[in-house]
Amino acid sequence: MLALSQAGYGESLRRYRVGALLRQSNTLKWLGGGRRQPASKIRTQVIASESSLDGSQEVDDEHTKFSDEDRFYLFHGRQHTYKLLIAYEGAKYAGWQTQVGLTSHDTIQGKIEEVLTRVTGDDRKILGVMGAGRTDSGVHALGQVAHFYTTKAQSTRKLHSALNGMLPFDIRVREVSEVPPDFHARFSALNKTYHYYIHTDPVLDPFTRQYRLHCWYPLDTDKIRQAASSLVGTHDFSGFANRTRNGKKRNPMRTISRFDVIEIERGLRLEVQSSGFLYKQVRNMVGALVHVGRGMMSLDEFEAVLVHKDRSRAPTGASAIGLYLATV
């Protein structure tokens, strides 16, 4: 099962209860049977449900209590939930997530919101677009998952066609599906898998130069595998994480379930899977693994980064060019 943070657990529990109440009230078309309850009664039930979140469940109230805005959109707007499976080339974008100071044209989320507002007629606050992984600037995706809400039922076929017809060619929606109201792209995710591609041929390939890190120097694949295997398991990954942009401290304990080094034509593909990653953790781990493969860092020095939890012991992280969010 997914090991959620305290905040994540609170959010998931909250959404589970809201979903259960919505199912009980028969507000969604695929849930037949039962008698529809008025919104006022549902509101009372949800507020009562919130009050049952006491200290015995060790949940942060900040993440479990509904704001007035939450209540409004839950009971008067967000009637249908949809899931997107998305692939994109991240080179031209400042990452997945919309950010203060950036326009909707600068991020993947912004582009998708822009199209959805036109297609559904709902504003961004109603839509509430949320991605499973907040990929950084320049990072690509093969299988990003996102969800959004609408006030009216939508044809998934028409949504799919309209999104791909109106989005730029470097963003493609692979699938659209309607999902239960308690689905959440981030908190419903059990694992995320990232791939990192390295081109090891001495001559740069002009056709993959924007999608693979070019290492023209010899790499010791066996040493890279050995170093990668030391990262599997539950560890404090402070030594491989950058400080977050907002300065907030996150729990540095993460569990990596696998870290595979696969030889491909003229290169390597590194595959790492976890329930969650710290800020720039994957790129920092890859950067250190490349140093090990080049002989610029010993296996003992590599493991010392993990043991001492010291970011200064690790080299600069690898470029975003070769990084892909593969599956969620």
Rank of each mutant, 00 (worst) to 15 (best):
M1G: 13
L2R: 15
S5N: 12
Q6I: 07
L28I: 15
K29N: 13
K29H: 14
W30C: 10
G34E: 09
A39I: 11
S56K: 15
E58F: 14
E58C: 12
D68G: 06
Y73D: 06
L74C: 10
R78N: 05
Y88I: 13
Y88T: 10
A91T: 14
A94V: 08
W96C: 01
K111F: 01
V115G: 03
T120G: 09
G121M: 05
L127I: 09
G128Y: 06
G131Y: 01
T135P: 04
D136K: 10
S137P: 01
F148P: 03
Y149A: 08
T150D: 03
T156D: 14
R157E: 15
S161F: 10
N164A: 11
V176W: 06
S177N: 11
E178D: 09
P180H: 07
P181E: 06
P181S: 12
A185Q: 01
L204M: 15
F207L: 09
Y211E: 13
P218Y: 00
L219G: 05
I224N: 03
A227T: 07
S229V: 04
H235C: 02
H235V: 02
S238H: 03
N242Y: 07
N242R: 15
T244Y: 05
N246P: 09
G247E: 13
E265P: 03
V272I: 15
G276I: 02
K280Y: 04
Q281R: 12
N284H: 11
M285T: 13
L289Q: 09
V292R: 06
V292F: 10
R294D: 01
L299S: 01
L306P: 02
V307N: 00
A314K: 08
L323A: 07
V328T: 11
